[in-house]
Design a protein around this nucleic acid. Structure first.
Lengths: 340, 340
DNA sequence: GCTGGCACTCGTCGTGAGTGAGTGCCAGTC
DNA sequence: GACTGGCACTCACTCACGACGAGTGCCAGC
């Protein structure tokens, strides 16, 4: 296959130049801007090989070369040096996040920060309920037959639902229910709650059975299952930067549509089990509408645990080292904040 | 000024045709598609007058006519017949909203529905806290020095904040605080709370003063003042439909940016005091970035009261009668749902 | 006041030549 | 064997030109 060091160097130069200029890069321009130590003709030979191997391609016969998805992949895996953030950037991240007043605020700030720093579309998943655990459950009577069920998790997230009860309940009963629920569930990971709460219904006093059953089903349905879904999004306007090239083709619509579908976005974070950044380039995306883009995602959470994902969506032609570094850094800071 | 009935009819025809085809409309095409009963030459004369008055203009010397912002304004004010929704549409709206499980869900469904029906960008403001009143306040101890403060409003909105207390408090004290707060504030409009809660601090028992003071300041800061701001947005991808015309000019970016700025969007609803729909066409928008678009907004709420705004943002070239009817209908249904 | 006719404007489309960046290949050199 | 300089070739892009035609404004006639 013959991909010696110089050929890799050429590929790196092509990727870097193309990302910077957004224009196909030719052999002459390459040797001028990078100290490759060889002539354009030699570079051309290398390019021919790289093209044969599928790492670069020519948009037109008489144009320069452009990296393919495969080329970016090789670049990311083997050629990009980690680009450490400048102290100024670190400070900016910290300052921006530190002022947050509650969980909602942290998520909002994080997503805006990501969008601003990477100049791309940023997505942050709210700390997933199922991966966190119960800190406290509270029942608040609203009327004789309606309760407000509040759950606080260890990531600071608060969820509530109004519950319509099958019949009126006494304050005493509510106190009992509250005690039972808390005794059973506090400290338990949400993923582990379903079997536990089933037992609660069975062991409940006969007269409280109906009420408990209602509460439990609401708890399961809404709090545990449904709320996996929340997301924050920012920087959509950066899509317009993708270049008039892509705009005219009408390629923008499907991307905007995909970004509005929470279900689709959540898929991006399905597999972020660790804090390591994951990069999906162009065709590597399972989501068809995002095949024209690259996605950089990572998990975040207090310490080594992962309670949610965050990342960015941008053109395949992006500054991978810089973007990856930024996403990682923001994720780490947010994780620290969650640890209090 | 000489805007007789036929000239108005010509303007209407121009607006309708242009909205339908997105292309400048000429005199010949007009008489063919609308039974105006006169010849193209006559229509041309009318057009000349309409142009002189500033209601239409020619993109190029030898092209058809296009309505100006002023032309749309006249159309909306005097020429558009109300377009009643089809029963099918009404049913669709109802079916879609009825399944909502809580306030968040209502707002989310409403905004998606609006975007889908109008095929434009939809914005819905969460029921404004300041315009609703307190149904219940609850204090939930999280630890000895931390409380969860929960407020439920009559629009079904639930707000909560964790409060860091100056010192530990006994369960009894919490019960007292809870009773006092509820006795003072339940049923009170949020706008009217500030003077009331100030009194609370002054009248509190000496040993409870510090705690009460903390609670009150959190209540004011966060619950009353800050949370005016929440919005839901949907249908951004419909912007890509604005036509390749507008896309190439790069006019999309500022619009996307404006849509991300919550502060800007909230301005759109500043003045929706009634259920009547308001239409801002092109240059009429105070927000400069939205001068290329039209905004249709209205207030909504249970009965005649207005607790929030909703609306759509789209190209000036839009189906005004249809859009206005849809926005109104959705607002009415959402209002009904809030009344329970 | 409306109409038919007519000259005129001007944007659009297609054609064709010129230009230049970039390539592939080859013979020569170290 | 690897690199280099040279050279012919390709082809997208730009611009100028002319034909075309939709649409207009104006005018004389009804």
């Amino acid at each position: 296959m013959g991909l010696d060091d110089r050929k890799l160097e050429v590929l790196r130069a092509i990727v870097e130049d193309y990302v910077a200029t957004q224009e196909p890069v030719g052999s002459k321009a390459l040797v001028e801007r990078h100290a490759l130590g060889v002539s354009p003709a030699t570079v051309r030979n290398d390019m021919a090989v790289l093209e044969e191997e599928g790492f670069i391609r020519q948009p037109h016969t008489s144009a320069g070369r452009v990296p393919t998805d495969r080329g970016y992949r090789l670049f990311v895996d083997r050629l990009s040096r980690v680009k450490p953030l400048s102290p100024a950037e670190r400070r900016a991240i910290e300052r921006f996040l530190v002022g947050a007043v509650d969980l909602d605020d942290v998520v909002h700030r994080a997503v805006r920060l990501l969008a601003q720093l990477t100049r791309q579309v940023a997505v942050v998943q709210y700390p997933s309920l199922t991966r966190s655990s119960v800190r406290h459950l509270e029942l608040v009577p609203v009327s004789t037959t309606r309760l407000l069920l509040v759950m606080i998790t260890d990531t600071g997230r608060v969820e509530q639902r109004v519950v319509e009860l099958p019949g009126p309940v006494e304050p005493d009963e509510i106190t009992d229910l509250r005690r039972t629920l808390n005794a059973t569930l506090v400290g338990v990971k949400l993923v582990d709650t379903p079997p536990l709460v089933q037992g609660l219904v069975e062991r409940a006093e006969p007269q409280a059975k109906a009420t408990m059953s209602t509460l439990v089903s609401v708890l399961l349905e809404t709090l545990v299952e449904r709320h996996e879904e929340r997301l924050a999004l920012a920087g959509t306007s950066n899509l317009a930067r993708m270049g008039p090239l892509d705009l005219t083709t009408g390629a923008l619509r499907p991307i905007l549509e995909a970004l509005e579908e929470e279900v689709i976005l959540l898929k991006l974070f399905d597999e972020v089990k660790s804090g390591a950044a994951r990069v999906r380039i162009g065709d590597e995306n399972e989501v068809v509408d995002l095949r024209a883009t690259s996605v950089v995602s990572t998990g975040y959470g207090p310490g080594a645990t992962v309670v949610g994902g965050m990342g960015i969506v941008g053109p395949t032609r992006m500054d991978y080292p810089g973007t990856i570094a930024t996403v990682r850094a923001v994720a780490r800071y947010v994780g620290e904040m969650l640890g209090h």
